[in-house]
Design a protein around this nucleic acid. Sequence first.
DNA 1: CTGTTAGCGCCTTCAA
DNA 2: TTGAAGGCGCTAACAG
Lengths: 340, 340
Amino acid sequence: MKDRVTIRDVARQAGVSLGTASRALNRTGRVSEEAIAAVTQAARQLGYRPDAVARSMRTRSSGVIGLLVSDLANPLYAQIITAAETAFQAAGYSLLVANTHSERKRETSLIELFRGRRVDGLILGPCEKESPELLEQLSRELPVVALDREFGQGCSGVQVDHYAGALQATQYVLNLGHTRVALLTPASDLRTGKERIAGFRRAFEERGLTPLPNLIRAEQSAMEFAFSEAMSLLSFAERPTAFICLGTRILAGVLQAIRHMGHTVPGDVSVISIGDTDLSRLFSPTITSLNWDLDVVGTCAAQLIFKQLDRKSQTPSAERIVVKTQLILRESCGPVTTQA
Amino acid sequence: MKDRVTIRDVARQAGVSLGTASRALNRTGRVSEEAIAAVTQAARQLGYRPDAVARSMRTRSSGVIGLLVSDLANPLYAQIITAAETAFQAAGYSLLVANTHSERKRETSLIELFRGRRVDGLILGPCEKESPELLEQLSRELPVVALDREFGQGCSGVQVDHYAGALQATQYVLNLGHTRVALLTPASDLRTGKERIAGFRRAFEERGLTPLPNLIRAEQSAMEFAFSEAMSLLSFAERPTAFICLGTRILAGVLQAIRHMGHTVPGDVSVISIGDTDLSRLFSPTITSLNWDLDVVGTCAAQLIFKQLDRKSQTPSAERIVVKTQLILRESCGPVTTQA
DNA sequence: CTGTTAGCGCCTTCAA
DNA sequence: TTGAAGGCGCTAACAG
């Protein structure tokens, strides 16, 4: 007896036709004031709640934007998400988030899930094997934004200038006289990793140097195994005198290794890290950091979606936004010591 | 010309009827092997992908579970989510996450969103004003699990034993001779806050003491303003000699304040915090911490959903799982000094 | 301005 | 085992 109330019930109760009820509820087309009043009241009275699924089926849209990240536990994403969410909410969209764990398979199936649910837009973060073709193709079907990952001509994206960032960080360390500089960054087959390595290399080239290849640790595993990577690096006879840690979870592992080996920062080892974390702000010494504005990243991603939503019918607008990094000087870097 | 391909197209291509195609695709009812083969091939050939929305409309379900958290940036949630996700994926469900920012209004509208999209289950984290009635009512309509928040008789939930945790932490500090102990925890109107305060009080009572009321800081704002709260506490003539920080973001603020005031840990001030963070493991000194198993929390939440899914038709099974905390002794607590 | 009608794509009886 | 038909709840197009 407590059947769900449909728009049909509302129409009957309000004494109008189904079509009028729909128009009144959606304020679409021409409807009389009294019709609107009657329908609105009937709806409230009956506790009518529109069926989003049925609506999506008709309109082929849903009012939700999907966002895929590789790792929800990464606090950087959390802030980006929050910023994007705010923008979307203001525009009447809801943001739903899912986790790819950077696995291509999961990403594929989640894209399918979202698409099947008629999301009105898709924001895709970095993922194992970032195929630009996939994004271009997807971009032809619905608004897509690549978040700090590779994307082709036909697709929009916002990306952080990791190249310039790594370049600047490395220059800074080289200026302090370090030569044995280690770089730790997640997967080298991701755009973020590639760019960072390129920037790192460039800084060396500028001075006619070449970085020691075995000081670059950019395996997929670098993230999880920062500690053991750092331990291995520190046990070299000619150990690195500086560490550049370009991944959120890497700093912790490196600091742990440094402590474990009985070294001091910045006395024995200089350290630079990505920096929007409690750890880099509060560690003793505080950690010199490479930062960028996460709110801007999130907001821009939303904007790019909006732009595509607007000119949905026309040529898909592909646009690229680049966010600059900033080196925050703190206490964790010093001149190279003349020992060993 | 490149119209979407529906099951109807598949049926035609396979030379069977629409109904048979549906049955073949879903392996439901009786279908001949050859029909299955023909349909399967036709589907692949045409690149058929079932329309999730249309399917949901018919079946009134979706294969997705919704999860609402108050703050995606909280790394504790991230880990819980990951654990739950793994469990759901193994069972063929997808997990979609959204952010309430602990605002009742957002929560309401997101619940509505999820429900309207026919989620097969809902997991709800803490939120401003946790109305048990709401959960009970919701629970009658679909599988619901309360995550560390208050819930009524008819609802399932998994919760951490914050009472026992706070009790143990406080006992530990009292045993070290501290009497002026400060407690900082998020909102006192949430279950988590209430339980912690109760445990804290209980520890004092056990020794015939009463905690100084102004040393309990549990405003909604405590999270964001841990730094200023701690500064204010430390500027008392009779300042606290120990801080119990029961919120993920609180420790950072407190440590900052302690440093700012020129105090040392644990010499001048002892500190206990929630502990699954880089900061508490790597700070010098390392921070004595109250921990619990986040994977268990996530997994249990999923299990409780599954149970309700199973006996969907029968009486809704309400169950409560309690996860115990554990006090990890590290370096940040010491005996009270005889100064001041 | 309003009522009627026709599906969106799918699943699921009901006969055959 | 299969085909045909009837909706799920809603919106959009078309007459009135």
